[in-house]
Simulated assay, not measured.
Amino acid sequence: MIEGRITKGIGGFYYVETSGGLYECKARGIFRKDKITPLVGDMVEIEVVDEKEKKGVIEAIRDRKNELIRPSIANVDMAVIVFAAKSPDPNLSLIDRFIVLAEREFLDIVICINKIDADEEKDYMKIKSIYESCGYKVVLTSTKKRIGIEELRDQMSGNVVVLAGPSGVGKSSLLNTIDQRLELKTGEISEKLGRGKHTTRHAELMDFGDGTMIADTPGFSSLSLNHIDEKELKEYFVEFEDYTDECRFHSDCIHENEPSCAVKNAVDDGKLFKERYDSYIQLLNEIRNNNRRSRR
């Protein structure tokens, strides 16, 4: 048996990187029977069936330390959430949704605001302030002017990274700028829809050397939080934590309608950004409404 990591999966074939090279593998039927789907990022054991053609069979999947649903990928260290300063305009709700999922899987989080050269008014600085106040690292980048590229590379160094964000924000362009050997396909913004055309069709882990592996994932425009409980959501808005103990109902407070809520007071006093709190309430109501519909 040989150990390796799945770096790509297409049409039932899984490409496993091992110390002996890359093998094209099928998965044993037992995984389908047990309703287990191999994921990009999985550490696996394979049996080689044709060394010359580099073909094998996945016999075992190691326990995952984490798993993201969309994009579907396992065993990630860091999420780099990429949004554009302009074209398409940033969607804070979407940023917060992915942050919630990344926090839930205990990932390190970096926010990358790309295309800053397109925003002459520098409105992106407000977004930078919002997320830096939460303790997140925010990197400002422009592939056209090669701004922030080395800083972003340094942040990702030595980690298994998922690069995620809506279509058209320049994820593939960023990776091409970091390593020009990649020659990933890039796409322009659809003028009719105002969002990017999909250029990445599947998650794929690429080796950037020095222990750095990065997954350029298909862009997304919506992200469901249906699997998260409404009482759990507050844990993933990490800036609330400094105030929770001051709430009258302490850990039971969900910072919505409760009296003497320190989080709401902090928002009113300008200590917490109202944009983040409004996003929290929006997601809380969405989760609650979805749960009600599922119980009907």
Rank of each mutant, 00 (worst) to 15 (best):
M1Q: 00
I6G: 00
G11P: 10
G20K: 10
Y23T: 01
K26N: 09
F31K: 01
R32D: 03
K33W: 10
D34E: 05
I36G: 13
P38L: 12
V40A: 03
V48M: 12
D50Q: 03
D50V: 04
E53A: 15
G56C: 03
I73C: 09
A74F: 11
N75S: 15
V76E: 04
A79F: 03
S87R: 15
D89F: 12
S93R: 11
I95E: 11
D96E: 07
L107F: 06
L107N: 05
L107E: 01
C112T: 08
I113F: 08
K115E: 04
E121R: 14
M125V: 14
M125F: 15
I127L: 14
I127T: 10
S129W: 00
S133E: 03
V139D: 09
V139R: 10
L140G: 08
T141W: 00
S142N: 01
S142P: 04
T143I: 15
K145G: 05
E150V: 12
L152C: 07
D154V: 07
G158Y: 05
L163R: 02
G165S: 05
G170F: 01
S172L: 01
L174C: 04
K185I: 11
K185T: 15
T186G: 02
T186L: 01
G187N: 10
E188I: 09
L193E: 05
G194E: 10
R201C: 06
D207P: 07
G209D: 05
G211T: 13
P218F: 15
L223Y: 12
S224A: 13
H227Q: 10
H227S: 09
E232A: 03
C247V: 11
R248S: 14
F249R: 02
H255R: 05
E256S: 05
C261N: 04
A262H: 07
V263H: 00
N265R: 13
A266Y: 02
A266H: 06
V267L: 12
K271Y: 02
K271H: 06
R276L: 11
S279C: 12
L283F: 03
L284F: 06
N285T: 02
N290S: 05
N290K: 06
R292F: 04
R295K: 08
